[in-house]
Design a protein around this nucleic acid. Sequence first.
DNA 1: GCCATCATAATTGTATACAATAAAGTTTCA
DNA 2: TGAAACTTTATTGTATACAATTATGATGGC
Lengths: 228, 228
Amino acid sequence: MNELQSKPGTADAVAADLERAIHEHRLPPGTKLGEDELGEVYGISRTTVRAALQSLGHRHLVQHKRNRGAFVAQPTVREAREVFEARSLLEPRTAHSACKRMTDDNIRALQAHIDAEHAALDAGESGRALYLSGRFHIEIARMADQSTIETMISELVSRSSLIIALYWQRRAALCESQAHHALISAFVDRDAELAEELMKNHLLDLVTSLDLRNSSSIPGTLKEALAK
Amino acid sequence: MNELQSKPGTADAVAADLERAIHEHRLPPGTKLGEDELGEVYGISRTTVRAALQSLGHRHLVQHKRNRGAFVAQPTVREAREVFEARSLLEPRTAHSACKRMTDDNIRALQAHIDAEHAALDAGESGRALYLSGRFHIEIARMADQSTIETMISELVSRSSLIIALYWQRRAALCESQAHHALISAFVDRDAELAEELMKNHLLDLVTSLDLRNSSSIPGTLKEALAK
DNA sequence: GCCATCATAATTGTATACAATAAAGTTTCA
DNA sequence: TGAAACTTTATTGTATACAATTATGATGGC
């Protein structure tokens, strides 16, 4: 919600930390999130851990299995399509709104974001680069001054990171930078219509770069299929 | 999520029950939701109550105040505008999708929904009528076969109910029925473009029927203003 | 040797107890 | 009499203990 982070040890702080770890692919889909284990890591009791896991569960980043525990979510092909469908409804129009309100400072902040993303890539920190790439979309929503939509996009972006972890085909460098650069150009030109169109196409490109064929080999699902 | 309700006594069941009560205006904005009190009502411990309240908090239906407790949320004017802005991005296009997939059974179900709404109004159960009126929108999202978007719309509809409780001007009968009837006609004609346009205008009508002037007298906020 | 069944261990689900904080009421002093 | 400070009370925040369920490993029969 707000930029200033919560005090360490609170459920919100733990949830934010876990969400970032998930977003950066340090916690891959399917990872078991034991309550005792997390409690020991963060030096808190299970009560607080459970609150954090419940929060992430509401955001569809963690999947709860009855009497089994919490696991980093593994979005299905269907869920993946739905997430990007939702993004395609929200983000293009939000980019339009953001463009109309955007200040020079906003544009500089976005540019700095991309620079940091490049720096992370050069440093071999692909997880951090992916995180920053997602934040770019969230920042645009924030600049549209629509906190409700921003919250929704934030959740969708994090879920997208899980989808990318599962269905990304080309492990090569993220070609997103080009699309983000083009968006900034539109912002500089104050061309809201173009920004909307660019965002729409950017999301379309993202979806088509995924391998969303039905019942493809999904890591971790094989095991579950055999368990039955 | 799924139609079949959870076992009574679980956090999900309590949250669903509270959400419905809020949606039906049996729990007005600002109502204190004491943990001990709720625990006694439902015959469960505070642990489960807290899980339910956290869930509602994440859906923005309940506002948590540090060391003060949980209260039924009181959306601000700004939040009200944002909620309907988000709905206007999601629902028209979703109505379009739903129209293209809609079966005759679906249409009959929607018609039954409206009939039940009318019956509730005739019986003087305005809260239940409002609830059913909101469910109408959620049912359409379900028929679009987009569960992710459905979840989002469901939250926005519930929040809209709070907004209506705070900012509704005309206490007269809900004029929504007309708009809903028109939507069904479009579904019958399989006119997706028309359905999209009707939904867009329906949401616009809803917003304009609210009194969203800044710093108008909001029930319950007066007290807080004086408390400082 | 393999499979089924049972016992054990580990983990989550739930309730309760204690600590911390804030509200309210009381007392005291000006 | 009024206001400020203190005490009391009530409520939430956190941790811990117990119960229920499931996974795992062992044992025995086929």
